[in-house]
Amino acid sequence: MDFLLSGQLLFAALVLGSVYAVIALGLNLVYGTMRLLNIAHGEIVMVGAYAAFWGFSLLGLSPLVALPVVGVLTGAIGLFLYGTLFRAQLAANKPVAQLEASSLLLFFGVSIVMQNLASLAFTATPRAYQHLDTVYQIGGVAMTGNRIATLVVSVAILVAVLLFLNRSIYGLAVKALIQHRDAARVVGINVDRVQTVSILAGFGIAGIAGALVSMAEQISPFMGFPFTIASFVVIIMGGLGNIVGGIMAGFLLAFIEIYAVALTSANFRSILIYGIFVGILVLRPQGLLGKARRS
């Protein structure tokens, strides 16, 4: 059992956890402020990954340099979807249940369209590129440069978003909207503007995460789906709309995943993820870390 104490597993879990936390954070912002269930979230990650790939292979741009551009690109996709599909519905103040159901179906449509547009444009063949793949030995743990970069950038994003939410006036408005939509409107918060900020941030972060992931994983039009699932598992573990809970749950899921797979075998990975998922939904739908919410 000594291998469980090795830094190698710890490092792998931290990297994976930071990626889960970042991707789920984007999903959580969009759900929390607008109650939109974005099951096309993984497709945004996919777009970010492709953008980084093309930037690197056509322009020789390091994905790390391209991160802001990728974020703006996927943020713009978010704004487009918000303007065309959701703004009117949100303004009409429909019941939450109806909004959740219709957003789920709309985003499902968006996800099919995006997957297949990507498949038409880039073919279904998986792609990959090599960048920052030098192996460093730090304290007896082998780390590739791109994984170190992924960890550092992800943690920086998490810290930045938390600071934004707690310190900036816009961030406080986002939090207010998450806590209570109607009350936020009553106290004079410009709901539409806050929603725009959340969409930009949520989609932008997902794209940036995709660019990070693209350095170490294969890129394909269908790579998004597992990320959608993982991020839903994470935000449900953390409590839907609970930002800090979601970040903690991202790391928790990664630790469970990495260590349980190390203990058993890779075959059990999916059973484990979905088992946790179903178990939490049935036993504690408000999330492991969440307080009971009114549904």
Binding site: L37, A97, E100, A101, L104, I229, F232, V233, I236, L240, S270, I271, Y274, G275, F277, V278, L281, V282, P285, S295
Partner: peptide, 18 residues
């Protein structure tokens, strides 16, 4: 069936995958 709304939708999906 105790689970409602978006949780139910996601749960049915997760259950099938499990």
């Amino acid at each position: 069936l105790r689970v409602r709304g978006p949780y139910f939708v996601i749960l049915t999906f997760g259950l099938a995958e499990l």
